[in-house]
Design a protein around this nucleic acid. Structure first.
Lengths: 148, 148
DNA sequence: CTCAGATAGTTCGTGATACGTACTAGTTTA
DNA sequence: TAAACTAGTACGTATCACGAACTATCTGAG
């Protein structure tokens, strides 16, 4: 069996996972960035600014992103009690149902992908990937669990 | 040390790699899709239609993509000698230099990431990722072409 | 050989995404 | 309290992606 280079293999894996995510998101008429927005909101109630930091977007980009999600009834804006300039963005019930469904499907896809491997290699992969991310996070000084 | 779930770990790894690629591409004023276009052209001379298949895009999307790359002098269109309707897309020297530089930087990023791991785990990761991709391709091939 | 249908590519209209700039409205600070 | 700062929005621009309509070319049935 041919073995890909480390770089090629990881790059292809990355694109494969992105395609899986994009396909599942698309089934709910979500883009990747909309899916990430809803995912971030599952356990947070951030301001527009904080969302920009979590998603790596300019605040003006987030403003439009939230506007389109709000128009679909997936998120809601509420004024911040702490700061009159700020807005808190939250998931609606509809948005939460959508992201939970998409996330479950995506998890099923990845689980199915991993079932191609024998259990020992599956566990090895999980362990090595964890170490890689932890080491990278430590090196970058980045929080390990940013938004999904 | 906390261990991430398989799904979370792979998803985060995927986003990490995409961010690395996007950052390096951006340093050359390339988007991810422009980078993929140039990457595909490194060892191919496809038609617009073939590009659409390779990149997973509609031909009208490819038409615009190639037009913008051509405007920047990164690719060139030439009429196909075999079919008067077709266009062959090729890298210019400038485009080749750009993609080679970006690819080298990205490879450096991934190599640097992998250096966080001891050599044994690095090799284990490469081997398991290769098997995963090969098994996935085989499984998809079976699903897509059951008769062959 | 001919012409109806298929195919390759472009163009156009629409919408999502992303950015920077400029603006408004609150907040903080000097 | 006035100046400086910050949060968010609005606007203009560009990329990206799609589908539909269109042109040019090719192919095959007769």
């Amino acid at each position: 069996m041919e073995e890909l280079s480390a770089v090629d293999g990881l790059a292809q894996l990355s694109f494969l996972l992105q395609r899986m995510l994009e396909r599942r998101a698309g089934e709910h008429d979500l883009s990747i960035i909309q899916t990430r927005l809803l995912g971030v909101l599952r356990d947070r109630r951030p301001t527009i600014n904080e969302l920009g930091r979590l998603l790596g977007l300019d605040k003006s980009s987030v403003s439009g992103l939230v506007e389109r999600a709000e128009r679909r009834g997936l998120v809601a804006r509420s004024p911040s009690p702490a700061d009159g300039r700020s807005v808190l963005v939250t998931l609606t019930d509809s948005g939460r149902a959508l992201i939970n469904g998409a996330a479950a499907q995506f998890e099923g896809d990845v689980t199915g992908l991993l079932e191609h491997l024998p259990a020992s290699e599956r566990h090895a992969l999980t362990r090595v990937v964890s170490r890689l991310l932890v080491a990278h996070a430590a090196a970058e000084g980045v929080e390990l669990f940013p938004g999904r």
